[in-house]
């Protein structure tokens, strides 16, 4: 069908304009602001690498970077394990599977402020049910939100729940695998575990890498609400994730320029983490 490409363009126009106006242009301006002293008002003045120097000397920026990277290292594996594991296990049409899918997806549709409030409550030392359950089993009852590691884990645990997107993608991908391969494997006497290990995972590998990349980015940027509601960055900046700090700088302290530079730093850190993932994936033969 010659000429079909040209006629498709009007359909793509609204989305293309949206991407340009709401994503590309703001991202480019952010890049420019990183090298200015912009406050959000008036005309920005060029300040070279001043913001970067400031970031290197800012102990809170270092703490925020550490908190963000630690969070991604803890949260991404847990989130992916649940999303991919449940996605593969629940893909088959069998009794109870749809109920299982609905329940696994359910926390994703809870507004994150509401979800954060629930976790604020369950980790509460006096009223919260988590320590009640732990106590009932004679297990240690950690102090959740007012110690550094307690607060980190509380947010990691909360963020292990809204995993719907990766779960959906895994469900769809698992279902698009040809049934013939499984029949052949079953004829060869492969157990369920062997089928998972030698048929499912290798075929899903490139997609899993993409999910890991997407989730790394999400984990570095969407932990704003839990940190904002649950811990307010504390205690001692243990959960002062970069997005929270950037938000404070840009909107509370009028440091648009400095916030933009921190955004660039976050961008570079994300790039490094993603590159490491891609290199590992290639080394393990997951990507060609």
């Amino acid at each position: 069908m010659r000429g079909r490409g040209a006629s498709a363009l009007p359909l793509l126009a609204p989305f293309g304009i949206g991407i340009a106006l709401l994503l590309v242009v703001p991202a480019l301006i952010t890049f420019g602001y990183a090298f200015t002293d912009h406050t959000g008002f008036g005309t920005p003045r060029f300040s070279g690498l001043g913001n970067l120097r400031r970031a290197f000397e800012d102990p809170l920026a270092a703490a925020a970077l550490r908190a963000s990277v630690l969070f991604a290292l803890l949260a991404v594996p847990i989130r992916l394990l649940v999303a991919v594991g449940a996605g593969i296990a629940l893909a088959r049409p069998r009794r109870g599977a749809r109920l299982g899918r609905v329940l696994v997806y359910l926390p994703t549709v809870i507004p994150d402020v509401a979800l954060a409030l629930v976790f604020l409550w369950v980790f509460n030392p006096l009223y919260g049910p988590v320590n009640g359950v732990l106590g009932a089993f004679g297990l240690p009852q950690p102090v959740w939100l007012s110690t550094a590691w307690g607060a980190r884990w509380a947010i990691v645990i909360m963020m292990a729940f809204p995993i719907g997107e990766a779960f959906l993608v895994t469900l769809a991908a698992r279902r698009s695998l040809p049934a013939e391969t499984y029949e052949a494997a079953a004829v060869d006497g492969a157990s369920a575990w062997q089928q998972l290990r030698h048929v499912t995972l290798p075929q899903l590998a490139p997609l899993l890498v993409l999910l890991a990349v997407r989730d790394t980015i999400l984990s570095l940027q969407v932990n704003f609400v839990p940190a904002y509601v649950l811990t307010d960055g504390g205690p001692d900046a243990a959960t002062l994730f970069l997005p929270v700090y950037i938000f404070d700088q840009a909107f509370e302290f009028l440091g648009f320029g400095y916030g933009a530079m921190l955004t660039l730093v976050l961008f570079v850190v994300t790039g490094v983490l993603i590159t490491i993932q891609a290199l590992l994936a290639r080394r393990w033969g997951w990507l060609r």
Partner: peptide, 8 residues
């Protein structure tokens, strides 16, 4: 990342 476009 959304943080890249918040302020601008």
């Amino acid at each position: 990342p959304v943080t890249a476009v918040w302020a601008t």
